[in-house]
């Protein structure tokens, strides 16, 4: 091994050891109704390890608007409500269909997520059609679920300690066109949020330059 190779290997080790992190600040703005929830994640990132995923039901609602799991994860659906529930999905487009049947008060049931990564599937209850939640099957440890309050037209959120080498961001919202954007440290960008070809809002993202957290 010559000296130049040794230097390259040394620099690689040093650079890996000193990978720096960044913070992202984002602001959603909607013209009318918000979509209820948004999910942002880096599709280059494979670091997510979800071992125990739970989704409970309370007060005739799912307690989380969106649950993030790994492909292959086991999800425990719980019912802490005073009424019986049922959980099912019927997504023809993504070819995900399942029905766990009745979950009585205090009961639970397990379900294995066997969909491909990148799919976000809507959950419903056959007894309470108002209820909805989503399960996202992704691999990204660096993700952010953004829940919106009813009638909220503007919301600012933060993603902290995102490694600087991740720059390919996916933005998913129900019924909206999925966005695949590139955001490098130090950049600020604004994206249109569209639904059936019409602009319904905007997302402004600002990423800090790398911060040495060591």
């Amino acid at each position: 091994m010559n000296l130049s190779n040794i230097i390259i290997i040394f620099l690689c080790i040093v650079s890996v050891g000193f990978t720096q992190n960044t913070n992202i600040t984002g602001t959603f703005t909607f013209k009318k109704r918000n979509p209820g929830v948004a999910l942002l994640y880096f599709d280059q990132d494979k670091g997510l390890k979800v071992s125990n995923a739970n989704l409970d039901q309370m007060n005739k609602a799912f307690v989380k608007p969106l649950l993030v799991v790994n492909p292959g994860s086991e999800v425990k659906f719980k019912n802490s409500d005073a009424v019986d529930h049922n959980i099912y999905a019927s997504d023809k487009k993504q070819k995900v269909n399942f029905d766990v049947g009745l979950i009585t008060t205090g009961g639970d049931t397990n379900y294995k997520v066997e969909w491909d990564k990148g799919k976000v599937v809507k959950l419903r209850c056959k007894i309470h059609p108002k209820m909805k939640s989503y399960i996202a099957s992704i691999e990204s440890e660096f993700h952010k679920v953004v829940p919106f309050e009813k009638r909220e037209k503007e919301l600012t959120f933060e993603m902290s300690s995102v490694p600087e080498n991740l720059d390919s961001l996916v933005i998913w919202m129900p019924k909206y066109k999925e966005l695949h954007v590139n955001l490098k440290p130090g950049e600020s960008k604004t994206f249109e949020l569209t639904r059936k070809g019409k602009v319904k809002g905007f997302l402004s993202l600002k990423r800090s330059v790398a911060i040495d957290e060591k």
């Binding site: 009318k32 109704r33 007060n59 005073a82 009638r151 639904r195 019409k198």
Partner: peptide, 24 residues
């Protein structure tokens, strides 16, 4: 308490809450 079923409060409907197709 465990047997109490959650109920939304009685109120007046708000047109702002109508979900029109494609929000139009």
């Amino acid at each position: 308490i465990g047997s109490i079923v959650y109920s939304e409060p009685l109120s007046t409907p708000d047109v702002e809450d109508i979900e029109y197709p494609d929000d139009e």
